[in-house]
Design a protein around this nucleic acid. Sequence first.
RNA 1: GUGCCCAUAGCUCAGUUGGAUAGAGCAUUAGAUUGCGGAUCUAAAGGCCGGAGGUUCGAAUCCUCUUGGGCACGCCA
Length: 723
Amino acid sequence: MDTYYVIKKAKDQITEIIRTKFPDADIEITAPPPELASDFAVPLFKLAKKYGKSPNHIHEEIESIFDKTGTLFDSVFFLAGYINFVLNQMEYFKYLARDALRLKNDFGKSNTGTGQSIVIDYSAPNIAKPFSIGHLRSTIIGQSLYNIFGFLGYAVTGINHLGDWGTQFGKLLYAFDNFRKKNKTEDPTIGELLDLYVLFHKKAEKEPELEDKARDYFMRLEKGDKECRKKWETFCKISLDEFKRVYTYLGGIRFDEYLGESFFFDKGQVILDEILSRRFCIFDSQEKYESFLNENGEIRSFLEKSIQSINISTPVFFLTDKGHTKAAGRISDNEKAAEFKALIDVKIKGQNKVLEKLRNITGDETQAKEILKQFESENIKSTVYWIETTGLTEKASGKISGEAQKKLQSQARCLASTGSFLYTEGDEDSGTETAKQENLLLVDLTDFGIDTPLLLQKKDGTTLYALRDLAAIKYRTDSYNPTQILYVVGSEQSLHFRQIFMVARLLGYETQCHHIDFGLYRFPEGKMSTRKGRIILLENILNEAVEKALEIIKDREIPENEKKEIARIVGIGSIKYTDLSQERRKEIVFDWAKMLNMDGNSAPYLQYTYVRIVSILNKAGTDPFSHSFETEVELTDKEHKLIMSLSRFPEILEAAARTYAPHIISGYLYSLSQDFNNFYNSTSVIRTEEADLRTARLLLCRITSIVIKNGLMLLGIEVPNRM
RNA sequence: GUGCCCAUAGCUCAGUUGGAUAGAGCAUUAGAUUGCGGAUCUAAAGGCCGGAGGUUCGAAUCCUCUUGGGCACGCCA
């Protein structure tokens, strides 16, 4: 599949033109303000600085060698520090038409992800609880990412990591045995399970000992008690049937695997063994560390492997939020050691966020450089190499002042550690603990900038979800060999994911794990809570939306069964769109009017635009894709704007994938639809007399329809053919 | 108390790696030769981008401090 799109071609040409004169130029191509007769612009300020010339001078040099022959451009001009590139509109349109003709319904697809595999963990509803609006975000954001990455050629695996294990089942089993009327023999409904769960919490407030009883029940479940297990299976089945019904209603939701937490609870021991096999060690001097190395071959090879894997002579460094440092290995290069210390100085001065970002770099050196540009404000002079944690590959370069270096040499402590820490309560750290607590296992992560230890196992020996999640990382890494694992989970769990990702790395799982966090739905008066029964059922919202959509079309001449299907597509689409059109980190205050909005920036607006295009194409009678389009016609400004907008689709998709942000697509589709409607209201396509122009306009309609349809499909939203 | 996230028009939100005069929708007001489908379009009005410093040729965007809101912080998930 050839996915070299016209917009890429145009940008490549701009880069090439500028680089013929300025070979090392770092070129940023921007969109000029709409009222300017320009299509692409490059700010020249940085070039001016780099080459010691004025922006105007830079522009003159580029203009002097600019030759439009063989390019997509007609001319260049200078304004306010920018060089502007004016397209040969017809040429650009012809290329766009060729892209569209070549790819047809696949317009927008690319192969940028070929060879890469991504695991996405999303939806993950909890067994025995109804599917609430809270799960909607995970489900549709996750599904959208699944669609987007698939469209870009990645091998995607969607996993529904069901919440089907844990102490909550102890509570439920207890409630089921003790609170349910004895004469009831039929299987409970989800609603009844929820009532029992809420009732348990209500009673437990007054009788705290119920919590212990629930823990006993859960222990029985983990130990394989047949009766508990059987009830648990029933709960799971009831819930799963319910979930699948909701997914069907939502439409377009699919998973490659339903693998819940229960699948992993007995796979945690391997993780525990791995952790326990490592030894806690910390040294207050280089000598002690080196003598330890000599005595411990295993650790030594671990470190050597780490150092080798990053392919530099400098060993692995470690930074904590406390401002002290750890270096796993020797700092053999004095210059680098000093720079490293200086880097810490910046840290101590409070630039936590910069360093936090450095830590989260996903392995791309240029990205790291970008972030380190911020250090320029510290008059940074020499180069710093930054290597994160135990031999992973992140690397960044920047500069640090000599003054900062000196200051820091007295401040920074360089300690050494192997990077793995675990103790059981009852060790010398807390000598008063009793034998009863010997099963409690936690990982201390304070040396890694995380103050809260990660609990893996409770004192009664039962597992916690952190351990199950670690087992899941191992399983996913082994099973799918992914380049990335995405967790589409609410931001409230960010600490949990920081913890388990850190431990996973310490254990040597190098798969990139990302928490795709999102803000929660909440009521104006506060948080939604399953325990308190304060939730809104997703289904109620969906039904309301579908009904409203049905109300709008009730008088139209469409068969009733089709009306119902249209109402479902439009109603559900509008709910999904409302969610996906918002930046995912922001919390959403629940508001009926907003959820049911079908005017303006909404799914029905896009669907409506699509439907009108379909109508035009039907009436036109000819398929503009039936033969290639290579003739010259006179295009209006509105048409050119639409062309520019259409051509951006591929890079919009890449931006959405890069930042895991479906809302970039919805924003784009809305803007595209506005451009189309603008054109639509000013120009009659069908009644265009000049044949070639008519064909060109039909072509624009056709491409727009494909982009809207594909874009909405990526958001998990369907389009009707009429509405 | 500590950490993370958020703050943009009356309301709900966009704002691409820092780029030219901060954009939409809703609501309000005034309009669109009954039209290729009015769930549409045009226009008006609406802003000290929470506040104060800083970095930069250039800041809604980066840094520091601060105010307000949300979330999390050892045996729940």
